[in-house]
């Protein structure tokens, strides 16, 4: 069974953390992953940096620019991760834009992920219909769960289609925004969380975008299975480098 599915079966709300590989320094990747697991994080999204990350706000974009300047490439990331499964057991997801994966070769990319022990992918600019028509077979052949995003504007019909194609969880974008854009949740978000919950989907939902502290984590996980923190953790790395990761995790739950 895929580690993502195993994690989702646990009787608790999941905390998932995103960081950009190659940030703050090129070789911080494994230390960050190990520390996050050590301090009780349930799942990790490893950002493969891209020059033009459309769905991200300034914090993640800047971390990507720095990571690329530090020399991060797809090959280097795979090299850094090659022994990661000797020390880390929680699900690992690579989150990145489609172009670098295309250039690597989709099949080779997926094969490499499987070899390393990557459990899933999040590719914000690969729409569900393209995936379904052209790539689903390849992803599944290599045991990879592909995670799709939904937003408050996504129609019920489309959510049902995404639910159908998904086999892990649904990434529920908290509001109409790029990453890191909001700092609190209002009634609109609460109603949206409840609307999705009422759809009774086969895939659990994990909320992302705008989760930055204990308050937003608790709010988001009232109905959802878990929450993803990205920009807030990148800010932590900016100020602390790779120190005090435990303090950050404790401040969330």
């Amino acid at each position: 069974m895929n580690r993502i599915n195993t994690a989702l079966e646990q009787d608790k709300k999941l905390l998932s953390i995103y960081f950009t590989a190659g940030y703050p320094s090129l070789n911080d990747t494994t230390k960050i992953i190990q520390d996050l697991e050590h301090h009780g994080v349930d799942m990790i999204e490893i950002g493969l940096p891209f020059s033009d990350p459309l769905a991200d706000g300034p914090t993640i974009q800047e971390s990507s620019t720095t990571a690329l300047k530090n020399g991060m490439t797809t090959n280097i990331l795979f090299e850094q991760l090659k022994d990661i499964r000797k020390s880390v057991n929680i699900p690992l997801i690579i989150m990145g834009y489609f172009n670098p994966m295309m250039q690597y070769g989709i099949e080779v990319f997926c094969a490499k992920c499987q070899e390393i022990g990557i459990d899933g992918l999040i590719i914000p600019d690969l729409p569900v219909n393209e995936y379904h028509e052209h790539y689903q077979e390849t992803f599944e052949k290599y045991g990879l769960i592909n995670v799709f995003l939904i937003t408050p504007q996504t129609s019920d019909e489309r959510i049902r289609f995404i639910d159908d194609v998904s086999n892990g969880f649904i990434y529920m974008v908290s509001s109409a925004s790029t990453t890191g854009a909001k700092s609190t949740f209002g009634d609109t978000q609460q109603q949206y969380f409840e609307r999705i919950s009422a759809l009774d989907l086969k895939n659990p939902q994990i909320v992302g975008f705008g989760i930055s502290n204990n308050e937003t984590f608790t709010q988001a996980t009232k109905t959802a299975k878990g929450a993803i923190i990205g920009s807030a953790f990148i800010k932590h790395l900016t100020h602390n480098r790779t120190d005090n990761i435990g303090d950050f995790v404790k401040s969330i739950r």
């Binding site: 891209f50 020059s51 033009d52 459309l54 690329l68 490439t73 797809t74 090959n75 834009y97 489609f98 172009n99 670098p100 994966m101 295309m102 250039q103 690597y104 600019d125």
Partner: peptide, 22 residues
């Protein structure tokens, strides 16, 4: 350029071997 994705479409674009847009 090589085939890739830029600004929402698949087309020819100038990029590094690693798929970063130049």
């Amino acid at each position: 350029g090589k085939e890739g994705i830029i600004h929402g479409c698949k087309t020819l674009l100038m990029q590094t071997q690693d798929g970063q847009i130049t």
